[in-house]
Design a binder for these strands. Sequence first.
DNA 1: CGCGGATTTGACATAGTTCAATTCGAGTGG
DNA 2: CCACTCGAATTGAACTATGTCAAATCCGCG
Lengths: 237, 237
Amino acid sequence: MSTSQQSTAVSASQPCLDCSRKSRCLGGLLVEGMPADQAATVAVTRMVVDKGEHLYRADDKADYLYVVRGGALKTYVSSIDGNEEIRGFHLAEEVAGLDAICQPSFRSSARALSRTWVCRLPITAVRSRMLESGSFRDRILANLGREFDRLNGMLHRERCTADQRVASFLVSQLKSDQTDEHAEIQLPMSRVDLARYLDLATETISRVFTRLQARNILRSRGAVCEVVDGDALRALA
Amino acid sequence: MSTSQQSTAVSASQPCLDCSRKSRCLGGLLVEGMPADQAATVAVTRMVVDKGEHLYRADDKADYLYVVRGGALKTYVSSIDGNEEIRGFHLAEEVAGLDAICQPSFRSSARALSRTWVCRLPITAVRSRMLESGSFRDRILANLGREFDRLNGMLHRERCTADQRVASFLVSQLKSDQTDEHAEIQLPMSRVDLARYLDLATETISRVFTRLQARNILRSRGAVCEVVDGDALRALA
DNA sequence: CGCGGATTTGACATAGTTCAATTCGAGTGG
DNA sequence: CCACTCGAATTGAACTATGTCAAATCCGCG
């Protein structure tokens, strides 16, 4: 992240109006095309969340959704035995809490994996804007659809072998702008969190990484993970 | 599409208007409060689907959603190796295809487990009605929320032991109107389909049933399944 | 009554877990 | 700059739940 200035500060004016990402970001689309006086009342807040801190917790009233500007989040539900079942990671540009648009409260908790910058959007504004702007409504519906796809993908992934789960996870982390060979992935989560996401033991994660490295598909040094043979990786998953 | 086996009885007038379930059913709510002439144009069709026939397939254009009147459906995605990953069963009163409201095409296929009666609702009508009627929009959002919950529940269930998966499935099949003890569940799906739903081998399903029977929690005779000790079953899950 | 698919049972194989021990690596302080 | 330290990651060895394959039994239906 290039942001040296950590702006917890609430901008005097609506922050999305002069945000550099307004054309791509949900916040920008929320105020796009609004009369200026209406846009000014949309209470979007920029926030910083320290590593390990919660953004929201399951059963909290779902008043806001969050767009990640930098850093990374995990969303999880705690099972009866106290373990975190991780349901998703959210990196820059991604939205967290959207599934709660249909519900009064969050069904999962969100916590920062590292210091994370987010924009907080009032759900009421989002809901009402859906009625005013067709393109905004479609954007939200598309996001919901992607959320369904993500959950369906998780269900599929968890019916695969450990190698396939890890491979398909890594493929999903490959940005499309990376040239196929020698792409470098910066994994923001610990092996423990990855294990809780893929429903494997951390030891198994570790063993799979070693195996992939032995087969010259991967080179992993801690959080950095260099994909040596992208095709082989994709073929696995 | 194998429409050949799908017999279609088109009622002369809009079928939801004088349907006995109109107060509970999505179809009824769709036309409720509409001016009579508008309601008449909403093209809801009653259909019968024979056992084994498809209602829709993955990648079909998602023009309709379906309310089950009687019988049972399964929705599934076929994985690369040709196996059906069953994503849900839909019994009477339930809705299938709703997740496609956000997408141009279905992401799963739906097939009848036995002769099944459904009402087919045009998605365009549903989408536009969402803009006109707040209560209808909320009903749809609530259904989408339940769909998210269902998928999250599946994710949780598949992180449990075989006994827990079966137990929690059986508990989910217990109707609330059944007195706790000696409730009888009529399972509409084969052991094979149940296995593909819970991601277990059919042999494992069978063994779990035998185990539960040995512990006097269950008594199963083929498709009929008598819950002898509901509390024990719930405690397992 | 007997056929054929569905279900159950048994014996064995194995992927992944668990527990324990070792190594790595990023901070920290001298 | 080098030793410490402490948690995270890796490796090893034994265990177990579930899968696989094969055989036996059940059950609905012509």
